[in-house]
Design a protein around this nucleic acid. Structure first.
Length: 857
RNA sequence: GCGAAAGUGGCGGAACCGGUAGACGCGCGAGACUUAGGAUCUCGUGGGGGUCCCCCCGUGGGGGUUCGAAUCCCCCCUUUCGCACCA
């Protein structure tokens, strides 16, 4: 026994569990027993439908609404870790408080159930992805329910259920009708390891963000969604949202709006021309060469015979490169002269045209004018190939031959006069840009333009476990959307989930019966065999929660009008761009269709920080489970040995052996202590380490609350409780009202850590009070109930209350009783202490000054 | 490189709009009650002085504004997170 439970954390857990059992049997029979009261109350809540969302129209009309939503989980095989319940606990506290405050609350939970991991597990285990998914959902549901969250489980949904995804398909048809879904042959991110394409948002540094598998460029026919049509609205509407600034900023960066101009360059000695996009048209006089991307269509036409071999070799080499190679910043610039010359429209200068892979075909026009004097990349390129560098903006401390001067505010234009006399010399950059843009427009040589970095959303995947597209390819190749009443297109049951040998998606294995379709007009066709990406289902699940059992509509207009928008949405930052951008896009399309009445789906967003954990590693880099580690003199060793370990705080992961399972924590301390600790750890939004020792602290707090009410030896009401009026304990009453005030305000602001510390202060005060009016305790329990609902429900019952605590109203505070004490202000003159003042908080500076001067005299 | 956020005891973290640090919890120390307790209760706990009244130093570093700065301003350092050849 000793040998296998040496580690501190685990030993503590086992010890606590033992202690719990021991107590049940012998002396302290009436001590706090979360393992008994928690399942009991969870069953009562379920039986009595305590958290059912109101649906009766009169009831809905009678109260204001509050929609509080968690980012629903992907039910992975690993089960829940302690990071999941952090956000869930926060939203549950809010949901319970809002109910108590008289709101109709919608607080649902569901499963983002389609996706690659289930498909891979299916291959590994020889089971169907649907079976794997069902199993994982069951695990997640059990784990989540153990925490006593007040979800309305009657509204549970799964994106992989037919009665859900038929509406995902329906929304796709709406997108198609509006011309927002189209097929195109585009260069895609193909991941050979996964056998599928990926969205731009899923690829970083040439690799799939989830697994790190390399991604290469391929030209493929794929479904695309025209999110670019919504770029401006997605950008502008961010302003109205109560979201973390960092997330808004990330979305702004992703959308990447830049203002500039298109400028047309004629090719010397012919009629052909090409257009460049630039944000700095003011530097046009400083252009000394042009560059085309290797994929630029004009390239082959203009390359001269003498340069053809070199250019073709360069283009071929660029095509071979992975994105990773092409975006490697460490590498130096490469390129080849095409032999062709372009004519600078502003002064007629002949500029050599180069091809180089630092110019991307996917952004702007795939062609640039290069101004090495005022652009770092062009500068580096010009230096590498000995191209001229001309200064046209003055103001830099060093010559442009040494470093590009890129300031775009205060620089003053020089050397910028055209042969016809037009000049922007002497102007500051912003004015120069306006002037030259107008000049170009007058002559038809260019025009102002806004450019976005956002690309269209690559919306198909070569996978099985996703939503089938509701479209058919008719004979002759025409794409035909299916009529709405043909939905759902059910995912056929197949037994092999790999692509076919000739590279078709897995659904090509479904057989003629599924693949062949006779269309309404009598033609026959073949079903689309790609499926939708995992993001599809999560783009609108918050709408299905409004009316999840509706089999005639995706949701009813009445429910939508009542509940939307989501008032509070809580989840991790990892979705700052992907899910949150996609969902906003779909929502705006649905808004344009008239199916939703708000421009934005999520009014307030909150990102909880990641929970980290200590991990232990020896000099060789091998990880040890915390149960094998012992601490001596502030250092860590492998238990029973002198092998010293390095301890660090890291993201929880299987390979680092530092994952904390909520089930273990609940077994040792109970769900209420778990809930409380999740919130007491620190501010919700920051990263913080899980420290099992600290759970003891909140556990002791709950024990003290228990003993405040229950005599542990007899199980009777504690002798300290009195039936006298609250005013009989004036100090405690003040403490109570301050607590009501602070808990209400802090919880509203999602600062639950300080709300809990205030409740601890109150309980410490109560413990020190000889005669505690019972009414003060019941009021306090109503405050604590959203945080520790099982304990409070039990104590509420023991104090003789008839109705559920879950239905008790939220207490209000008396401002007079909750008022802060006077502040002490030390009066100082030139840093020397000269006296003290007692003032009320909020006293104005002038008043303080006046009082200080008066006291001085 | 660019952008954002943040640096407070042995640890997690408090501190409203500048009001005189370290709430609450962990850990640690002392005591009480106990056959015993790693339970519970009480007291103490930033550092350094000092015959217990108190003094000095303290919120990453350096300047500044102010009667007064963890909080506001400038420069620097560090960490975390985004973006990364986007013309």
């Amino acid at each position: 026994m000793r040998q296998w439970c040496r580690g501190r954390g685990l030993r503590r857990i086992r010890r606590s569990a033992r202690r719990g059992r021991a107590r049940e049997g012998c002396m302290a029979e009436h001590s706090y027993q979360p393992s008994e009261i928690e399942p009991k109350w969870q069953a009562v809540w379920a039986e009595r439908g305590a958290f059912r969302t109101p649906t009766d129209p009169a009831e809905l009309a009678a109260k204001p609404k509050f929609y509080v939503l968690d980012m629903f989980p992907y039910p992975s095989g690993a089960g829940l870790h302690v990071g999941h319940p952090e956000g869930y606990t926060a939203t549950d506290v809010i949901a319970r408080m809002k109910r108590a405050q008289g709101f109709n609350v919608l607080h649902p939970m569901g499963w983002d159930a389609f996706g690659l991991p289930a498909e891979r597990a299916a291959v590994r285990e020889g089971l169907h992805p649907a079976v794997i998914t069902e199993r994982n959902i069951a695990t997640f549901r059990t784990q989540i329910q153990r925490l006593g969250f007040s979800y309305d489980w009657e509204r549970e949904i799964s994106t992989a259920a037919v009665d859900y995804y038929r509406w995902t398909q329906w929304i796709f048809l709406k997108l198609y009708e509006r011309g927002l879904a189209y097929e195109a042959s585009v260069p895609v991110n193909w991941c050979p390891a996964l056998g599928t394409v990926l969205a731009n948002e899923e690829v970083k540094d040439g690799a799939y963000v989830e697994t790190g598998d390399p991604v290469e460029r391929r030209l493929m026919r794929q479904w695309m969604l025209k999110i670019t049509d919504y770029a401006e609205r997605l950008l502008v509407d961010l302003e109205e949202l109560d979201w973390p600034e960092s997330v808004k900023e990330m979305q702004r960066n992703w959308i990447g709006k830049s203002r500039g101009a298109d400028v047309v360059f004629r090719i010397d000695g012919g009629e052909r021309s090409f257009t460049v996009f630039t944000t700095r048209p003011d530097t046009l006089f400083g252009a000394t060469y042009c560059v085309l991307a290797p994929e630029h269509p004009l390239l082959a036409e203009i390359t001269t015979a003498g340069q053809r071999a070199a250019v073709e070799a360069y283009v071929a080499a660029a095509a071979q490169k992975t994105d990773l190679d092409r975006t490697d910043l460490a590498k130096s610039k490469t390129g080849v002269f095409t032999g062709a010359l372009a004519v600078n429209p502003v002064n007629g200068q002949k500029l050599p045209i180069w091809v180089a892979d630092y110019v991307l075909m996917g952004y702007g026009t795939g062609a640039i004018m290069a101004v090495p004097g005022h652009d770092e990349r062009d500068h580096e390129f010009a230096r590498a190939f000995g191209l001229p560098i001309v200064e046209v903006v003055a103001g830099s401390g060093s010559p442009v031959g040494e470093a590009a001067y890129t300031d775009n505010q205060d620089g003053v234009l020089v050397n910028s006069t055209a042969p016809d006399g037009f000049s922007i010399d002497g102007l500051k950059v912003p004015e120069a840009i306006a002037r030259i843009t107008a000049w170009l427009e007058e002559r038809g040589l260019g025009r102002e333009r806004v450019q976005y970095r956002l690309r269209d959303w690559l919306f198909s995947r070569q996978r099985y476990w996703g939503e089938p597209f509701p479209v058919v390819h008719a004979e002759g190749g025409e794409v035909v959307p299916l009529p709405e009443d043909w939905l759902p297109v059910e995912l056929p049951v197949i037994d092999e989930f790999k692509p076919t040998d000739d590279g078709q998606p897995p659904l090509a294995r479904a057989g003629e019966q599924w693949l062949r379709v006779t269309l309404p007009d009598g033609r026959s066709g073949t079903r689309e065999t790609n499926t939708m990406p995992q993001w599809a289902g999560s783009c609108w699940y918050y709408l299905r929660f409004l009316d999840p059992r509706n089999d005639r509509q995706a949701w009813s207009p009445e429910a939508e009008r009542y509940w939307m928008p989501v008032d509070l949405y809580v989840g991790g930052v990892e979705h700052a761009v992907l899910h949150l951008l996609y969902a906003r896009f779909w929502h705006k399309v649905l808004y344009d269709c008239g199916y939703v009445h708000t421009k934005e789906p999520f009014q307030r967003l909150f990102n909880q920080g990641m929970i980290l954990a200590h991990s232990f590693r020896d000099a060789g880099g091998k990880y040890y489970h915390p149960a094998e580690v012992e601490e001596r003199g502030g250092r860590s060793f492998v238990a029973g040995t002198d092998t010293e370990l390095e301890s660090q705080i890291e993201k929880m992961s299987k390979s680092k052996l530092n994952v904390v399972n909520p089930d273990d924590v609940i077994a040792a301390y109970g769900a209420d202590a778990m809930r409380l600790y999740e919130l007491f750890m620190g501010p919700l939004e920051v990263q913080k380490p899980w420290q099992m020792k600290d759970v003891e602290g909140v556990n002791r707090f709950l024990q003290r609350v228990w003993r405040l009410v229950v005599d542990e030896r007899t199980g009777e009401r504690a002798a300290r409780l009195s039936d006298e009026p609250p005013a009989s304990a004036p100090e405690l009453l003040r403490s109570l009202h301050k607590t009501i005030k602070k808990v209400t305000a802090d919880t509203e602001a999602l600062q639950m850590n300080t709300a809990i510390s205030q409740m601890m202060i109150f309980v410490n005060d109560a413990t020190a009070t000889p005669r505690v009016p019972v009414e003060i305790v019941t009021t306090f329990l109503r405050l604590l109930a959203p945080f520790a609902p099982h304990l409070c429900e039990e104590l509420w019952l023991r104090l003789g209350e008839a109705d559920l605590m879950a239905h008790a109203p939220w207490p209000g505070h008396d401002p007079e009783l909750a008022r802060d004490e006077l502040l002490t202000i030390v009066v100082q003159v030139n840093g020397k202490r000269r006296g003290e003042l007692q003032v009320a908080p909020g006293t104005r500076d002038e008043e303080i000054r006046r009082l200080a001067l008066a006291s001085e005299a």
